[in-house]
Amino acid sequence: MKKCLPFASFLFTIIVWETAVRAFGISVHSMPAPSQVALGLWEMIRSGVIFHHITASLFRVTWGYFLAVCTAVPIGLVLGIWRQAGQLAEPLIQFLRPISPLAWIPFALLWLGIGDKPAVFLIFLSVFFPMLVFSMSGVSGIKKTYIRIAANFGLKGRDYYVKVILPAALPEIVTGLRISLGTAWVVIVAAEMIAVKSGLGYLIIDARNSLRMDHVIGAMIIIGATGLVLDRCIRKLEDLPAVKWSRVLK
């Protein structure tokens, strides 16, 4: 019974939606009913079109995310450890961070032309700044006692960074990984509305242009479901012993 409860809200929404569309006789071009959406979605699944678009979106997110994490985490760690550099960089980072990655679209197109590259670049931007901030605060937030104990036991150099700094900052970095993956998945839809001919964002624009609102909603459902799966997967990281301790401590 308890396990069914979360699905009840879905079921309720679908029933109300279907009834409303039928009762008011709303046109499929302004608001399709769930049954019509299901048919449209099935059509896209059977032809395999939807999988093509999902793969395209995931491909771009993976690349942008991977490149951003690989650069932002090391830079963030260094800025966290090296206080002066961190203080120097902080205002600039905090200034650039709230600028939506979408504001970079003109430059993305100007510099990288059309194709996958500008979309990957926008994903990169949406992940880079949050990861930078999370890695920095992961290091600067380490309890002073741990630093003192490391000094007391004579932990220096590589041992100090590998056994103390990195593991102490890891939970914060993992939180950053989860949050920025969510952001990346939000941004990809907008990023694919420009300069590409595939992906879930493109699918939405394309369906709208041919007035297939059932496909628009179908794509939205797929975006939601994929986002949920991605979040569930990355949440697994939080249960690792190397990460879990920080949650238990609070």
Binding site: T145, Y146, R148, I149, N152, F153, K163, P167, W245
Partner: peptide, 29 residues
Amino acid sequence: PSPEHVFIFQEDGLFPWMTALENVSIGAR
């Protein structure tokens, strides 16, 4: 501070990301 003299702090000082064994190993370097 010197590794020859060990300080036990008022608050928990075990590294929470290490097992008991790994923590004690820090003193056995």
